[in-house]
Design a protein around this nucleic acid. Structure first.
Lengths: 207, 207, 207, 207
DNA sequence: CATGAATGAGAATTCATTCAT
DNA sequence: GATGAATGAATTCTCATTCAT
């Protein structure tokens, strides 16, 4: 029994990490499928196959799982966004790259959801924002503010600006996934043009 | 025996109207405080001081109360928006007037809420969108689409455009009411500039 | 105003009687349609068009309405049964006539129900016994006991005998109305034969 | 480590079985005391002393408890009836044995109830039919129909016949247990005589 | 007396959370 | 640390009954 001391990543450790991850994965799906408000802790643990009580060995509540997922998302997207910022000194370029990244992630989440709910006519249920999206938003917001602070963006009310950009892209994303086929490029083009030039700079037409 | 006889002015009718209004008021507050999804019928009825069963004499569900509130809002703002549309043939002028109207309404609702919740440090709780705001949004959206269809706005993806304008103004409104003092003019200026000219057209400075 | 004194059956009196009757009629229907246990006082008064409170001016509860209906039934069937007893000195004849009367009443109630519920596949819902049927049962039971006491029936355990006859006819009635077409004669023949001669005396065959 | 290891004999399993049984026992009592229609899930769970939610760990509804009880009854009586059928090729003999079995069971259930409700003057409340009795009825009905189909009974309307026998014995059972002392033999004799020979074949006398 | 809204107890059911195993 | 049944508060909703008008 004592040779377990040599194995810091023994079975127990593995199980612990695996269970935590299983709960996070289940929660991600459930938040996406049922919405954060509507879903219950039971919905989450049911999908893991674990026992009800086990949930509380890892998280104290649904809120905590949401936060953990958001953290995960931030950890994943933080570096990506940093790279985008580094690679795009121009504010417009950065904006376009960041918006594309977000919309593509959103589209991929939608596809995952569609695959898992084939019987559901696409778009009938309004899918809420996932914790990851939330995290991406926060990161983008920081990036926008940093860009403006660095003089790469316009000298204006950065709070209003970041809010305007974020909300616009989020909602355009919502419309985008309800269309068939989902066209992330067109959506990104629209959002970028709107942010940079307002209605005067918008791409013309579209049936 | 007077000609007022056909008006439901008895004590009973009075109480009925009062109770209905009490429930609507309570629901407005609760939706605003806890959010539509999170709150329960109990939360609403508790705040009225009425008996639990009384709720169901007036509404069948939380949804129905929401609709009633939204109807109220639409009834109030429909005419105002129509007047704005009629008085402002220019798209930019219309936009500015409509945005001002919405932001002023939102600010007034916030004041009302602050007055009713003096103990609550302003901004601690994030107030969600009320049904009335929702109604106003729908009206504004229609107006934007009509303006674009009438050639007064740019020929572009009207769905994206309306969504972008609406969401941007909504969120800017959210930021606006968290500031002290609330400055609807500045917020409206920002939103209009952003919509019309994008970042390039934004008003400079910021305290 | 004083000439109302001459009219003991004035408007008030009439309304009183009419309302009471309206409630009884509604209750009869509701008991028959939904069953005594399942239906509520609300169901009854809703069908009258009267106000909820009015119910309690006439009856204290659902139970009391049931009793009143049973009394009504007893009042209507008492004389009929008495006539049957008088006209049929022979126990078998009396039995046959009484059973026929009951089964015909039951069939007619069923027809009324079918007419009122055309969309309902006949027989899907098991219709409970109405208060009238209950009353008829009690009367028949008395009649049987009286017949036996008078020496027209067999000298045996009258309690068991009445119970046996009553329950048998009631259940046969239940089967009868589930058949298509409803044949009260055949059912009555079977019941009488069974009571008088047991399985040995039963009418042969039947597909 | 013994071969008993595969039996669910832990404390948890024990409690589970006990709770399930406690609910079934409570339900049996409640069905018997208040009647199936009138009683509620609350009535059942209240009598167990368990928490409200616990009921739903075992059954989904009142209906499901009823079914479980009926199954229990059927499981116990199925084999007994089969044995009776096998041992009594004569229809009359079979009938007598089956009726005896049922009435004895009913009497024993009544005794159990009396023992558990000493304060209740026997017979004050009319005990309804329990799910077990219902199950026994269904079994007996099958047996009668099989006997008739096999030519051991009279060639007549089997549906009417089975219904008549079943209902008669049930109600005679109801009268029987209200008497003091309970005499299952006399009741069985009466029922059999009535079924086989009708009023002409009934046992004479009666105290 | 009729009215009908208010009442509040009570029903079915769900679910976060605990805790003995 | 995993398990999963027990708990009981909370929720939605119904309904018998009362009582001011």
């Amino acid at each position: 029994m004592s040779n377990l001391a040599y194995l810091p990543a023994g079975k127990r450790e593995q199980t612990k990490v695996q269970n935590r991850q299983a709960i996070l994965d289940a929660a991600r799906e459930v938040f996406s499928d049922l919405g954060y408000e509507a879903c219950t802790v039971r919905d989450i643990i049911r999908r893991t196959g674990l026992a009800a009580g086990t949930f509380y060995n890892y998280f104290r509540s649904k809120e905590e799982v949401f936060s953990a997922l958001a953290d995960e998302g931030a950890k994943r997207f933080g570096p990506i966004l940093k790279a985008i910022r580094a690679a795009n000194p121009d504010f417009g370029d950065f904006l376009r790259a960041a918006i594309r990244a977000y919309l593509q992630y959103r589209a991929s989440e939608h596809m995952r959801w569609l695959a898992a709910n084939p019987q559901d006519p696409a778009g009938l249920r309004v899918q809420g924002e996932t914790p990851e999206m939330h995290a991406v938003f926060l990161e983008v917001r920081d990036a926008i503010e940093a860009a403006i602070a660095a003089g790469k963006g316009p000298a204006t009310d950065t709070d209003y600006l970041a809010t305007a950009c974020i909300s616009m892209v989020r909602e355009i994303g919502g419309v985008m996934i309800r269309r068939e086929p989902v066209d992330t490029e067109a959506a990104a083009d629209f959002a970028v043009a709107m942010i940079l030039g307002g209605v005067r700079g918008l791409p013309a037409v579209k049936p």
